[in-house]
């Protein structure tokens, strides 16, 4: 179709949708709508993972981000009852500074991507690395140490959040 393969079409459509939903997160006035647009963005990103042959990552992305974390976001925002009337209006100077700072972050991110193709990313196995079996084997053999470190980090964060949440610490 028009000289492009189906994969390229899918990539184009998914990229357009994820950027559009990402912009809608920022531009929508209602915080609940923002959260729902963010959920849609996560679905589009999961689609990108599927295109990269990483089914496990795609499904876990949906289960963890869309299914658990964003539900908690929605939960908190619904409880806080944010309305458009009591939304604080920022001064134009702050808006300008925020715009410039955000633009510079974008500049840094785009700059870091330039030249990444010369890094020569390591190829692990075949194109089937994204399946559960291959990913598990690589994670628990070659990358066991960083994997365990990451899990200890998560455990520490878990214990820390429980401590903060406690009312009376003995």
């Amino acid at each position: 179709m028009l000289g492009y393969t189906i994969t390229q079409w899918l990539f184009g459509i998914l990229s357009f949708l994820s950027i559009m939903f990402g912009l809608m997160v920022v531009f929508s006035r209602n915080p609940v709508n923002s959260v729902l647009y963010l959920v849609m963005t996560f679905f589009c990103i999961a689609g990108h993972y599927l295109l990269l042959n990483a089914q496990f990552l795609a499904v876990v992305h949906i289960v963890v981000y869309a299914g658990a974390i964003m539900v908690l976001f929605l939960f908190v925002i619904m409880l806080m009852d944010l309305n458009q009337e009591n939304e604080p209006q920022k001064a134009w100077l702050i808006k300008l500074i925020a715009g410039i700072a955000g633009g510079m972050l974008l500049f840094v991110l785009v700059g870091s991507l330039k030249g990444s193709e010369q890094l020569g990313l390591a190829q692990y196995g075949s194109s089937q690395i994204g399946t559960v079996k291959n990913l598990g084997k690589v994670l628990f053999s070659e990358f066991l140490f960083p994997f365990e470190i990451a899990s200890i980090l998560l455990l520490a964060a878990l214990v820390g959040s429980i401590m903060i949440g406690k009312k009376d610490i003995k």
Partner: peptide, 8 residues
């Protein structure tokens, strides 16, 4: 995992 994704 698909089942869990849809349920969540």
């Amino acid at each position: 995992l698909y089942l869990f994704g849809v349920v969540s």
